[in-house]
Design a binder for these strands. Structure first.
Length: 438
RNA sequence: GACCCGUUCGUCUAUCGGUUAGGACUCCAGAUUUUCAUUCUGGCAAGAAGGGUUCGACUCCCUUACGGGUCGCCA
């Protein structure tokens, strides 16, 4: 039996991280077992569906790198994959239920008559769970067809899982109580139930339920904020699943190699943006310089900064220092622009040490005397100036960094000197010396 | 309210009856980097509570508390 999983979102909003993780787990499970991953759009509620929401699902899945083997755009043998186009299929299955006497009309709608007995499911994550359908007050017969003739989620979801030969249903724990209902339907159809795995929900940092509007809820926010899809995928995989090893940084392929439903937790996990950023930093660090530069360039342009010829070298100098791509503009601005601002705090700190502050003018002079400019040559010049003044070279490093970048943090000083070039380096040291004197 | 699921450092987690309860994020300290960051090393920090079962319980059972989910002609 080949594994067939599916992600079945309804296009009623943007793709949120909970849905993304459900999609991811289904995708991983299919990949892990050499199976097929199906995308099915559950757009039966016409009033709530929008074209933007539908597109948001495709965009989000695409960005996350979760290609579907069957579904919209790619087709497959079990289509159509939009429920809005499957009415004929549903009518046929509904007739079966009618013939079996399992439905009855109620105020124009059609209800499915549950068998009044205990129903036990064997969930791959939650284990054995029994719901007693003899308690009618807690399990009223459910509407499966609306008075306008359209079908309700429970019905179409079950029919399609059967029709599309889905073997494993991996979905959020919010569906756990729906499962016995679905099992009853499947039994009435005489079908074979797929295996179910209900994964715990993702909570906000404060433990409340994560819903739309909450920070970090929309997948579409992540690329904008400078997250790599590989990092987001890595992070949400770790929410409720563990590799059982000390490793935490995985590519999508590495996740697929290791994923198993047995290792999925039962308790809901809180979303920790701090750690998500750290995971992103780890993934950024693994990028090559050119790849990083290419991804960072749009952020720099969007910040209204110029993109010089040596941008690749500039980006590479800050690659291991940023956690988000969106931090690149601020981290590199002093290398991209001619004029820079000096942070007041940094100016004060340099000014506090008059001995080293007074060495900036001689340093500018020494820089001007360098024949062939390089970071290495400039540092040698710095050493000479410091030595002549009886100051440790290291003490001159911070004032020079301040003069060149206007700030306390940044790339290696040698890199900065290289990237800036002699003209800008000299003028900045002079300007800074003037500023200190004023 | 009823019915389900859950509860290990602040957060994500390991542990599948016997461990000094391990790792990661955050934070702090030290080292390295003649500068900043990275990095490295170390440190702080946990079994919700109460009963059982057992030679022995974080691990199994019960109760309570807390958290989450579900009870729609939404999905």
């Amino acid at each position: 039996m080949t594994v067939r999983t599916r992600f079945a979102p309804s296009p009623t909003g943007y793709l949120h991280v909970g849905g993304a993780r459900t999609a991811l787990f289904n995708w991983l499970f299919a990949r892990r077992h050499g199976g097929t991953f199906v995308l099915r759009v559950e757009d039966t509620d016409e009033a709530r569906n929008t074209e933007e929401a539908r597109q948001a699902i495709f965009d989000g899945m695409g960005w996350l790198g979760l290609q579907w083997d069957e579904g919209p755009q790619v087709g497959g043998n079990y289509g159509p994959y939009f429920q809005s186009e499957r009415k004929g299929v549903y009518d046929a299955w509904f007739d079966k239920l009618c013939a079996g006497g399992r439905v009855y009309e109620d105020a124009g709608a059609w209800r499915f008559r549950f068998e009044r007995k205990p129903v036990t499911m064997n969930d791959l994550v939650c284990g054995e769970v029994t719901i007693d359908y003899r308690d009618e007050s807690n399990t009223p017969d459910m509407v499966i067809r609306r008075s306008d003739g359209s079908y309700v989620f429970h019905f179409v979801n079950v029919v399609d899982d059967l029709e599309m030969a889905i073997t494993h249903v991996i979905r959020g724990e919010d569906h756990l109580m729906n499962t016995p209902k679905h099992l009853q339907l499947i039994e009435a159809f005489g079908g074979v139930a797929p295996q179910y795995a209900h994964i715990p929900l993702i909570l906000n940092p404060d433990g409340s339920k994560m819903s739309k509007r909450d920070a970090g809820a929309a997948v579409s926010d992540y690329p904008r904020q400078g997250f790599l899809s590989a990092a987001v995928v890595n992070f949400i995989a770790l929410l409720g699943w563990s590799s059982k090893s000390a490793e935490e940084i995985f590519s999508l392929d590495q996740l697929a190699e290791r994923f198993s439903l047995e290792a999925v937790n039962r308790a809901p996990a809180r979303f920790d943006l701090e750690k998500c950023r750290w995971v992103n930093q780890q993934h950024l660090a693994q990028l090559s310089g050119p790849a990083f530069a290419q991804l960072a360039a749009p952020f720099v342009q969007q910040a209204g900064l110029p993109l010089p010829e040596n941008f690749e070298a500039i980006a590479t100098a800050v690659k291991d220092k940023v956690r988000l791509l969106s931090e690149v503009p601020e981290a590199t601005a002093f290398l991209l622009l001619d004029k820079i601002e000096f942070e007041a705090e940094v100016v004060a700190k340099v000014r506090a040490n008059a001995a080293t502050a007074g060495l900036l003018d001689p340093l500018a002079l020494a820089f001007a005397g360098i024949g062939e400019w390089s970071g290495h040559a400039a540092k040698a010049a710095l050493q000479e100036v410091a030595g002549a003044a009886g100051v440790k070279p290291g003490q001159l490093m911070f004032p020079l960094r301040a003069a060149l970048s206007g700030r306390a943090h940044g790339p290696d000083l040698g890199d900065i000197l290289d990237l800036l070039g002699s003209a800008r380096a000299i003028s900045r040291v002079r300007d800074f010396a003037k500023l200190l004197a004023s």
